[in-house]
Design a protein around this nucleic acid. Structure first.
Lengths: 181, 181
DNA sequence: CATATATTCGGATCAGCGATCCACTTATAT
DNA sequence: ATATAAGTGGATCGCTGATCCGAATATATG
């Protein structure tokens, strides 16, 4: 990649991160391009879709979350590990208002730039769930896809201004439903 | 209202219902107007916002749901009444893909045409919850707004094609979390 | 260093959206 | 039959993301 292109790409990512933090993932791509003092076409060549832009922006976060899952797998009791990781996931999404809908769409769309990351995340959750289930502390009638859906639900809740104040309490309610104690 | 206007209004409602059933509540208003063989301006005069159109379209459903709540209040045990009504609410939203987001936005926006209906719905749920709480069969650390949020979460889940297959099972999980048995 | 060329850029354009304006039509009351 | 109030919808605005292509430029080569 040419040096000037690399510079534009990096700059766009930085600006996009700021814009999304302010306005959520549905922020106008034109706005991002304007704020980066770059043509819209330039943004769209580097990141042909909104998903592609997000994938580049969230790659680090995704890696951190899967790493966190591995870490908890050895450092905590199965039930604590599961609940803490779910909490980490939900908290993380609050930084990217609106990302949940895109992730839900991506996990079954193999063409989406976010697909692989979402599948990896779901697998990490499934491992933690299986561990708790083997220990007998998580209900056995749910699977990794259910956990992914539950996280998505709670994350979506946090995205809705009117419902967000309930997010913490309802996380507890849902967590208590997953555990068998 | 002039007779021709009334006719247009009714026709628009019928067409809008069909269009929304096919494409969800985010269907293009221009499309609805086109299918009704009417100018976009005409649709927008009868229903100045998407919320206003939905309000007219869903008024009957809203009334049915609140009526159903009253009915269950006398015909079923407190816990059955609560769970069945929640289920009715979630099932109902599946007919109007995407309506959950608008309802979540409307419940705190007193300007929204959907506001009153949402508040009424939340109150109906709060009554059923209180009844179950008094009977000691629902956890006491949640309130009507929490129930509204839980229904919204589950309804949203049903709107996401990739997560919808889990909706039934997770309804059960959430329901079991509300009840204290 | 000068030049060739492959890459990158972004203004211009397109079709779509909801919102608004206003000249025109039409139902209805007198 | 006519006056008038009510209703209509084409045209236009600013916005969105997508695409095209002539212009600008970084870089490799002579």
């Amino acid at each position: 990649m040419r040096a000037d292109a690399r510079k534009n790409r990096d700059h766009l990512l930085a600006v996009a991160g700021a814009a999304i933090a302010e306005q959520g993932v549905e922020v106008s791509l034109r706005d991002i391009a304007r704020r980066a003092e770059v043509g819209l076409a330039t943004l769209l060549r580097h990141f042909p879709t909104r998903e592609a832009l997000l994938e580049a922006l969230l790659r680090t976060s995704f890696d951190e979350l899967t790493g966190r899952a591995r870490e908890l797998e050895t450092s905590s009791s199965p039930e604590d590990a599961l609940v803490r990781w779910l909490h980490d996931c939900v908290v993380w999404t609050t930084e990217y208002r609106g990302v949940t809908v895109l992730m839900a769409a991506a996990i079954e769309d193999t063409e989406s730039a976010l697909h692989a990351s979402c599948v990896t995340l779901r697998a990490a959750g499934a491992r933690l769930l299986a561990r708790a289930q083997e220990a007998g502390t998580a209900r056995s009638d749910i699977d990794g896809a259910d956990v992914f859906a539950l996280v998505a639900m709670l994350a979506w809740l946090g995205d809705q201004p009117s419902l967000a104040p309930r997010a913490d309490r309802l996380f507890g309610v849902v967590a208590s439903a997953i555990l068998t104690r």
